[in-house]
Each structure stands twice: as structure tokens, then as C-alpha cells.
Simulated assay, not measured.
Amino acid sequence: MGRMALLAVVALAASLISVGVSWAIFPNDPVAVADDTDFDAAKFYETHARANAARGVVVASAPGTSLVPRPVAGLNQAQTNNAFIVIEVARQMQLPERAMVVAIATALQETYLRNLANPKVPASLKLPHEGTGTNYDSLGIFQQRASIWGTPEQLMDPAFASAKFYNKLVKVDGWQKMSVTGAAQAVQRSAFASAYAKHATTAQKIVDELNR
């Protein structure tokens, strides 16, 4: 076999291996996340007055007081409300602060803690949202794909979306000892894996302010 022919065979083999690896990591056909989330969002809001207030429901409080968390770390009110719910869900699930930081850093990268609808999923536009995105069929504050993670109603609910995120996080072996980036990427499988790192400090500050 000539030198050029040999190089062509090697190049073809390398290409096929690359395609195979890419498919294994990022398959074209989405694989649904197991529906093992027994989190009852309705009950969560019923029993967490501040979380209920954070999602815009009027909740009775003592005169001169407000159950809605004050904006923190440069976030606006809507972003702070979403962050508060993410943190409260972790508390409800009895998860450590580290899980909260990973989740907040993830949401900062994906949407900067905005609950985004998607025109590609028309049902999401009829639900409460704070803007839109057009990445595949991704929805909500974590940009979870409707073809993988759940229904639009579930993923556009910050509490349920948070529970889905945490359920997958805690199944990652050794996530507690991973960097924020490593843990976030293990859940999200983003094409921009290193992007979460820049949000770690802000995420910690948000958790410090709201996890009280």
C-alpha cells in the first residue's frame, strides 16, 4: 500500500472513531431523563409561603413585612425570586449548600436565572416566563430540554425544574468533591463545559445571602 493510500486509511479510521465518540457523548437523538422526580411542586408551594410569594402569589404577611426576598448580588427581583426557589428546593430535599451553589452557578450560565420560554415549544409561551430562548427545545431557568427532561409545565416551574436538576446531580458519583464546573457539566452535558466556572463566586454569594 502506498504512503498516500495508507494516510487516507488512517484519516478515515480516525474520522470514524471521532464520530463514534461524539455520538456517544452528544447523541443526535435525545435520551429522556428517567422520570424519578417525586417532588410535589404544588405541595412545596403550599407549605413554603416565601417560595410561593417568590413566584408571584400574594401571600398574607404581617403588616409592614414582605415575604418576597430582597434582590441580592446584582440580581433583579425576578432573578432573585428564582434563585430563592432553587435554594429552598435544596433545603426541602435536605441537600447541602454545595448543591445549591452548583445549581445557582448552572442557572446563571444557562439563563442568568431567568425563566425562559421557547417559541419552538408553543405551550411554554402560555406559561409565566421572563423572556424567550431558542436553543433546541430548552426551557426554564436550567434550559432543560422538553424532549428529555419533562413537560413544559414542569420545566417552566422553577421548583420542579430545580428538583429535576438536583435529582440528577446526586446520582453523579463523587459530585460533592467535584469543582462547580465539573458537577454542573455532569448534569447539563453542555457543549461549553468550562463556562460554569466564572459563575462560582457569584453563586456562592447568592447562596450566602439567601440561605438563611
Rank of each mutant, 00 (worst) to 15 (best):
M1D: 09
M1K: 06
L6A: 14
A8E: 11
A8L: 15
V10M: 14
A11H: 12
A11M: 12
A11P: 06
L16I: 14
I17W: 12
V19Y: 12
V19P: 01
G20M: 05
V21S: 10
W23R: 10
I25C: 04
F26S: 06
P27K: 10
P27E: 09
V31L: 10
A32H: 07
V33N: 06
F44L: 04
T47Q: 07
H48T: 02
A49R: 05
A49T: 06
A49L: 10
A51F: 04
A51G: 07
A54P: 00
R55V: 05
V58W: 07
A60S: 14
A62S: 15
P63H: 08
L67R: 02
L67D: 12
P71K: 02
N76Q: 01
N81D: 14
V89E: 00
V89H: 02
R91W: 05
P96H: 11
P96E: 13
E97M: 10
V101F: 09
A103S: 13
I104F: 10
I104V: 15
A105I: 04
A107G: 15
L108P: 07
Q109S: 10
E110C: 06
T111C: 01
N115G: 03
A117N: 07
V121C: 02
S124A: 12
L127R: 00
P128Y: 10
H129K: 03
G131W: 08
G131I: 07
T132E: 11
N135C: 13
N135P: 03
I141A: 06
F142W: 07
F142D: 03
Q144W: 02
A146D: 10
A146G: 11
I148D: 11
L155T: 08
D157N: 13
P158E: 00
F160N: 00
A161T: 05
A163D: 03
F165M: 05
V172D: 13
D173E: 14
D173R: 15
G174W: 11
W175C: 10
W175S: 09
Q176A: 14
V180S: 07
V180E: 08
G182Q: 14
A184L: 07
A184V: 04
A186F: 08
V187S: 03
Q188I: 04
Q188H: 00
S190R: 01
S194W: 05
K198D: 13
H199M: 06
A203W: 03
Q204T: 15
I206T: 01
I206N: 08
I206M: 00
V207I: 11
D208Q: 08
E209R: 13
L210S: 03
